[in-house]
Design a protein around this nucleic acid. Structure first.
Lengths: 246, 246
DNA sequence: TTGCATAGTGTTAAAGTAACACTATGCAAA
DNA sequence: TTTGCATAGTGTTACTTTAACACTATGCAA
């Protein structure tokens, strides 16, 4: 039995990961072969992970479902950040060709609710079911379908703002991480180079970044101490003094 | 000719205004009269300003249209902040009664894209066409329909965060305002009491809050100097040094 | 003329930020 | 075993920002 979908509503997920000291996005290949000549590829580019919403399905559940399907992960950081609904967002020639071939009864205007997700990319196993899905560095994206360049840009802006105020960067790192890894994360997402000593001083004042009695293994240099992030400690210790800074 | 709408998609606007040193929301009365007994009112409460989206209409245009209809204003501050799509958001008994009577062919699940808007309430004229629409203080809201209490709460959270970082509070004040009015605005939205001298010192350092050679008129006490806000100056002078503050 | 209501003004201690360079450690290669 | 290499880890200081605090000034109305 096939579930019924809203044919004018979809969820798109911008899934961020961090590898080689660079922020990456997960993309899926979209390819269309000429029906008359199966050797000929009419269209080949990449898109975000998106699906239509089932009738009766909560938005957040739809996003969770898509994530689970594409990464195998549950319980990961996921947040709605914007909804895209320009009347012309699917009207580019190549997107229309693809939609007509793949989704004949889609609505001419599809509103897409976009979520962004932060994952520890080392936990995402290359999926047999989705071999065409992979990580792409944010600074070197391939050709993208639909309005996905815009969606990614807005997700990135949102991430850059949010990472300054809330401890979400940890979601991109393994459970155990070093302070240098953390700094690399901030440096690369923000496109700046923070001062190493000031950064470490600041982090060591954060009670929710907890040093372990454990060091890196198998590195060809002085091994660094590893830390974990505790959301519980964060919640308990964060202070709520609003400061106006325009 | 009637325009076709997406029957599973709507836009709701949380319109904020500032009066009597209190943040207000604009609400519209929703009333249902018993068809068998026109003297009997079955349902009476309030809702946000919302409408279905026309097919082919951009989301932002739909929000703009609603605002124009309800307030008479254009070119006002308007921003999408969240999309609400729980499967059960319209399923409360009273809402179902109302929907069946008013919108017989509505979809059982309606996704609503919510915008929040900041207006100078002194410019909103009591509208003959919508006499049932008015301002309600955020701390003393009447009975509300649908999931609108939740939508208003999330709008308010969003506003509280945003007003600390971006100069949007001015949108709620008349073009010319005094520093005391501005402080009252912050105090009341944030629910705190900022120090008067520190606040004035901070504001006087903001180049985009420009003092005029003009004083308040017709006040029964020492008249205050009036100021204007310049978005242009703001854009030119704002600095973009990110600071991490978790 | 007085009272009232609100406008407007400065100083100081404390905290936070930014700028800056060297030593320590563990492994690997010679 | 020694040396080099790569990265870890550490403090001080000047400067800036914030927080706490109370009195005088002005314009109108009674």
């Amino acid at each position: 039995m096939k579930k019924k979908v809203h044919n004018n509503l979809s969820v798109d997920c911008v899934i961020f990961g961090f590898e080689n000291n660079q922020l990456h996005v997960m993309l899926t290949k979209r390819e269309l072969v000429d029906p008359k000549d199966p050797g000929k590829i009419i269209l080949s580019d990449y898109t975000l992970q998106g699906q239509h919403i089932y009738i009766g399905e909560n938005l957040y559940d739809a996003a969770t479902r898509i994530l689970k399907e594409k990464t195998g992960l549950s319980n990961i950081y996921l947040e709605q950040f914007h909804t895209f609904g320009s009347a012309d967002r699917l009207l580019r020639e190549k997107d229309q060709v693809w939609l007509k071939a793949t989704f004949p009864d889609i609505s001419p205007q599809v509103i897409s609710v976009a979520y962004f997700s932060l994952v520890d990319s080392s936990l995402v196993k290359p999926d047999k079911k989705h071999p065409e899905t992979g990580w792409f560095p944010i600074n070197d994206l391939p050709d993208l379908g639909f309005d996905h360049p815009r969606i990614i840009n807005i997700a990135l802006e949102y991430l850059r703002k949010k990472i300054l105020r809330e401890p979400i960067g940890f979601e991109l790192l393994p459970e155990k991480f070093t302070i240098t890894q953390l700094q690399n994360l901030y440096d690369s997402i923000l496109g700046i180079n923070l001062d190493k000593r000031n950064f470490r001083k600041k982090v060591s004042q954060m009670k929710f970044v907890i040093p372990l009695d454990e060091k890196q293994q198998k590195v060809p240099h002085k091994p660094a101490r590893v830390h974990i992030f505790s959301w519980d400690v964060y919640k308990k210790t964060k202070e709520e003094k609003p400061t106006i800074s325009l």
